[in-house]
Nucleic acid binder design. Structure first.
Lengths: 365, 365
DNA sequence: CTGTTAGCGCTTTCAT
DNA sequence: ATGAAAGCGCTAACAG
């Protein structure tokens, strides 16, 4: 019987629950259970895992004893042997965006269903932070990694340890062109569709507000925009492309200021994200520009905010939820694939479709 | 010298970086370093930790060798001995809210600065999920816990293992009344201020749209609202209190429907969160109700959305960032306090102030 | 300043 | 169906 020492005694005074959780300083181990039941630790270990090699009644005795004695599984000891942590690392540019929250939300739901834990950290859009986070994940020995790149990440050197050790990485949303496995939407097609829609509404001078071209999401949208113009026989003019490193509220205000001082103003604007679009619209409206009569507008993401602005914003529905789900399922599949190599060699680039959501901000007919 | 086997060979072909990260299947341990340098594993262990007891030159040799040999620290083995994981568990109702994202963002920044990892999971507002998450955290042996409760959590039984084992918990935002350590804002005072502001604007019939009274945040706001009315000599009428379990977009629409069918409509509405307020306003506007002329409006949270609605929403600025910072700092202080007991016994309820942000939606004079 | 030694708690052959 | 024993990689007495 474990002796209740001074600290345990205080814990005893504090506690308000069944004796199951008594803190005696001494953690219960499988050895304690084994001794208690006159079994070997090996049998207890198997019994706790419901190993069918163990007699059904014995298993039950073991599990009951474990519960009664307040046993808790020690994952470290287990990890030390098995080399698996059931932990997935997640690197994202920022936690506080609507899209990312939805993606993480979906990932968390699926991960806990399959008994994986998530270890989340954000780069704040800086490659240095991304590097140190990746490093930390590597040392914490995550089983796999889900990554959405920072705005200024130019190379993947900081992921080499993962590649070399065959720790699977699934890139999502902000994916590098060289990624072997990635999940994102077809930004090029989506941008084409948006631009074509604005053309159909009669726009002749369409401006694009875009993000850092280092990232596929923004580069592809710019390309889609330009190609749509070319296909329509228009020339993608340089002065109609406005690029900012980060597409936030400030970028929207800046874009508005830029538009207001243009001699020949655009009659349509396709903005690579909703937040920027919304704040740009607000600023333009304050200066008497009518949306969509003077200027049609479209955004990207179908952020909650896009329904709140007046007029409601035409945008691209791009489900963080869906991307998150597919990304983590892909990763877990790789983790649980029996043969270790095969899955790592074949490339798997998933491109999701997105849908144009037409709302009042772009309807001119 | 480690032999490159078949798998290692493929890894070699794949790799594009320095030989530091070669995957030889065999992980480098302190024993390998020790053998390489003709030292004992203990010395290597100390050297890697920059223990001043070790000769400065030896330390350097050890660290250089570690780097060259591609050593990576094995946290499990370390945890197994030291019983500390440098991992903090976080339980939140939902990841995808603006407030929570900001709080997590702040926590992540501070945690990584102090070398802690975060293990985040969400309850989806259900106590069952919260329970299983808490359980998982306990088994993963987090050093401490940060908790914001689900909407329907009625008791804290699932946290007993933590209390009993003296694993510190800091509750934040959605805190239980019985919490020993908690960080939240003064919801009562904030709600009073909002209500008083509406009164000052000439409102005589102020409605309150509130959330689940099980949670302090909503109960306190309701109380603040009622007390402000009483102080002003008004009677908090039952038909002017509209309570929904979850304050989301749907709740806003439902509230609007409710208001539209009221015989004697309110001339002011104080809504316990911005999202609900915004969608309620949108619906009311569509039915010809003018804000603020017919009905003044105020929300809570200063969500990004509150500046996008027209008219802009009067609200309470309640920084997720600040709450997150203080919560995690409080927890880390507890974790790093030398004497284990003292800090756990004293209660520490931090109540932050918030500020009323007056915007057009409530200005009638 | 460095080395020896004995575990931390679990898993896993290999025996029985 | 169960047990014995070795070892995962690190740390902390204790000894020198």
């Amino acid at each position: 019987m474990p002796v209740v020492n001074a600290i345990g005694y205080i814990a005893l005074l504090l506690q308000t629950t069944s004796p199951v959780f008594m803190a005696n300083d001494k953690e219960i181990t499988i050895y304690d259970i084994a001794a208690h039941l006159n079994l070997s630790p090996a049998t207890v270990s198997r019994g706790l895992k419901d190993n069918p090699a163990i007699n059904k009644r014995t298993r039950k005795r073991i599990q009951d004893a474990a519960r009664e004695m307040g046993y808790r599984f020690n994952a470290f000891a287990s990890n030390l042997r098995t080399k698996k942590t059931f932990t997935i690392g997640i690197l994202v540019p920022r936690l506080n965006s609507y899209f990312m929250s939805a993606a993480l939300s979906a990932m968390d739901t699926i991960a806990s269903g399959k008994n994986y834990q998530l270890m989340i950290s954000q780069s704040m859009e800086h490659k240095e932070k991304e590097q140190s986070n990746a490093n930390m994940m590597f040392h914490k020995r995550v089983d796999g990694l889900l990554v959405s790149l920072a705005a200024d990440t130019a190379d993947l050197a900081h992921f080499e340890p993962f590649f070399a050790n065959k720790i699977p990485i699934v890139f999502f949303d902000r994916v590098p062109p060289t990624a072997r496995v990635s999940v994102s939407i077809d930004n090029y097609q989506a941008a084409r569709k948006v631009t074509e829609h604005l053309l159909q509404q009669g726009c002749k001078r369409i401006m694009h507000i875009g993000g850092n071209k280092l990232r596929n999401v923004y580069a592809d949208r710019i390309k889609g925009y330009k190609d749509a113009l070319v296909t329509a026989g228009l020339n993608p003019a340089k002065e109609l492309l406005f690029v900012k490193d980060e597409l936030n509220e400030a970028a929207g205000l800046e874009a508005a200021r830029h538009i207001l001082q243009m001699d020949k103003k655009p009659d349509g604007v396709f903005c690579a994200n909703d937040i920027t679009a919304v704040h740009c619209i607000r600023a333009l409206k304050q200066h008497g520009i009518r949306i969509p009569e003077d200027m049609a507008f479209a955004g990207f993401n179908n952020d909650a905010i896009s329904c709140v602005i007046d007029p409601e914003l035409t945008t691209v529905n791009y489900s963080g939820n869906m991307v998150g789900q597919i990304a983590i399922n892909t990763l877990i599949d790789m983790l649980e694939m029996p043969g270790p190599m095969d899955s790592m060699l074949e490339s798997n680039k998933i491109l999701l479709q997105s849908e144009l959501v037409v709302r009042a901000s772009s309807l001119r007919k």
